[in-house]
Design a protein around this nucleic acid. Structure first.
Lengths: 210, 210
DNA sequence: CCCTAGATAGTTATTGATCACTATCTTATG
DNA sequence: CATAAGATAGTGATCAATAACTATCTAGGG
């Protein structure tokens, strides 16, 4: 609680902190229940101060989404680069994504919040970009895997990418609804092999950990 | 728009219509943006009239969820019963679910709305029940499939059920965000074979349509 | 070194809009 | 005529946004 005493940050630092507490509050109480009053209280300032740094609440959500997009893509790209083959990269991306979400539980909620992309067209545009970029990344890795004979040649890589994203969605959903009973990382480790079985070339030895 | 003229329904019919327009509005403008004023306007009555039939707005959402639970389970059970083997039942359930969602687009939004199950504990309980029952249904079918040698014996049926539900989640998400560009039914038909490849016993002929 | 002026961050107080919910009156229908 | 459905007209609470004011920091001249 050493935060509540500090005040008068620079504009850039304050903007960063607004984004931070917004994600924090969204994780705890849901995206559409975060008020500007909540944000201010979490930072130890008054509500009006929030609007010195953002012209509107939607502008805050936009900043949050851009933050998510940049961090997310950086994490995924770095994870994929460390893989020694397409399928290895896919697995590293998967677990990097799961770990990132576990550290920032609000992220999937923000990206799928109809409350945000249902009203503001610009916000939805950002979400669409993120989704398409991610899906393309997965489909590309799978096609690379086909070239290297790790992935079935008759696989519909586009559909498989949809399934991949759905897998993450489903994992998040279940661990958020059945909270406590299941942990995200544990369920993820169980579910990925099932997905890999769908894309791998049928071989005598399982190709998951060569 | 012949609805707006009709008035003075019986209490039961009015309750049914409130549930109906609530789902309708939730599909169009998002779960948490549906006001009691919207409901009343959609039915051609005043806002106060809504509260003659439900004690609170949460009670309306509860009624909606119970409606969804009952209809959903009936549809799934009927579809599964028509299958001639476990894997056939699984596919019929899948497409029945997709068709049901296509006819009532608000359903996945209602079930995954943090705005609802984030605040009201009883509402979340209903969602949890639905999810667990559905997952159990899938896992059971997969175990039956193992007995009949349609499904790999080394499959983690629990994890596969998670992936199955995630598949539907992902399909809904993508067709709702990329609305217009992709249709739910078409994407579903492409994605299911990928999932089946993960669970089926490896065989020379694809076991999807025996 | 100090003092002042401008800039910047935050406060206080308020506004208008929206929302769930309610009390009281009215009317349709069996 | 009695009763149930709906209309009318509110209430208090909440929320985003704004305007006017105050505290704090920084830079430059004397």
């Amino acid at each position: 609680m050493s935060e509540a005493v500090r005040k008068r940050l620079g504009a850039d630092e304050r903007r960063e902190e607004i984004i931070r507490v917004t994600l924090e509050l969204a994780a705890r109480q849901g995206v559409d229940d975060v008020t500007t009053q909540d944000m201010a209280q979490a930072m130890g300032v008054t509500q009006g101060a929030v609007f010195r740094h953002f012209p509107s609440k939607d502008a805050i959500w936009m900043a949050v989404m851009l933050w998510v997009r940049d961090r997310m893509m950086a994490v995924l790209t770095r994870a994929a680069a460390q893989g020694r083959d397409p399928l290895d990269s896919l697995q590293r991306m998967f677990f990097a994504h799961i770990a990132f979400i576990a550290g920032h539980p609000a992220i999937p909620r923000v990206l799928t919040s109809e409350h945000l992309h249902g009203r503001n067209a610009v916000l939805r545009q950002v979400v669409t970009e993120i989704m398409l970029a991610y899906e393309a990344k997965i489909a590309h890795l799978l096609r690379d895997g086909q070239v290297q004979k790790q992935v079935r040649l008759d696989l519909d890589t586009q559909a498989a990418a949809t399934l991949y994203i759905g897998m993450i969605q489903g994992l998040v959903l279940q661990t958020s609804i059945l909270r406590g009973q299941r942990t995200l990382a544990a369920e993820a480790a169980r579910t990925l092999p099932v997905f890999l079985a769908a894309v791998c070339t049928p071989s005598p030895t399982q190709g998951t950990h060569p």
